[in-house]
Amino acid sequence: MTRIDVQDLRKEYGSTRAVDRLTFAVEPGRVTGFLGPNGAGKSTTMRILLGLDRPTSGTALIGGRRYADLVEPLREVGALLDAQAAHGSRTARAHLRALAASNRIPVRRVDEVLEEAGLTAVAGHRIKTFSLGMRQRLGIAAALLGDPSVVVLDEPSNGLDPEGIIWTRELMRSLAREGRTVLVSSHLMNETASFADHLIVLGRGRLLADTAMRDFIDSRIRPRVRLRTTEGGRLRALLLGKGFDPVPREGGLWEVEGARVEDIGPIAARDGIPILELAQEEATLEQAYLDLTAGEAEFASASTPLNQEA
């Protein structure tokens, strides 16, 4: 089992601080979503993790070792950083073969990952003829080449078609089920909510949250119940007495903030109030995220002009 450990990491470019005293761990066996707006320091952190950028201070270790000290790194860590980085004039197969050779990965793995990524038919085509979605698939194929126990993907669903998005989601989930460590950055909330078990949220290079996704949402967004009844007035009075505040909505619907269906159902049943519809409204990751970033006043006002992704 291989953990990623980031400890007191700092990266400064001149006077800009891209990563600021960042400490977190990524555990195996689950998908960890790495969230934050553009320029929050996600890509910088990933580049430092892969030994490409040098931190100003602090460490980023994989299984207790620096990436640069791994003997055949592709066999331990697979990464997709930028789908555009592969040389456009090479064929997909040649690109992967060159990577495989450096880490003495058998050539058959090249065909296996091409197949897995659905690129077998275009394996002999030049990468510059690929759409962004196909390049993402190739980048993910490259990440899987060495059958690594750690997978790091930077914005993998960027440019993918719906089918590709489902494919990456299922892939990440199955990698985690196999006990691998999976770190996936994104700035798309709904997308992240569909695959992540755990969240690490950055803003301006600092850690804003490191928590299970469910806890993250529940701790920030109060639950809400939506219901329909024939006796709205009676139910409202009843619920007000129990400390809830039902608000009428159009179409005869009521919404109750801060309540769960388990709270409302029994109350209505006890007084024989007919309930036509009763549903829990699940808070979304997006709502929780916006709540978090709104709380970071400095972050919210300064996040726009700050862009150190380059």
Binding site: R47, L50, G51, L52, Y67, A68, L70, P73, L74, A79, L81, D82, Q84, A85, A86, H87, G88, L99, S102, N103, A142
Partner: peptide, 18 residues
């Protein structure tokens, strides 16, 4: 220099970090 086109060097150095 072809390695540096579109930051392809990152892919190369991720494979051969030394």
């Amino acid at each position: 220099a072809g390695e540096y086109k579109n930051a392809g060097i990152r892919i190369s150095l991720a494979a051969v970090p030394n």
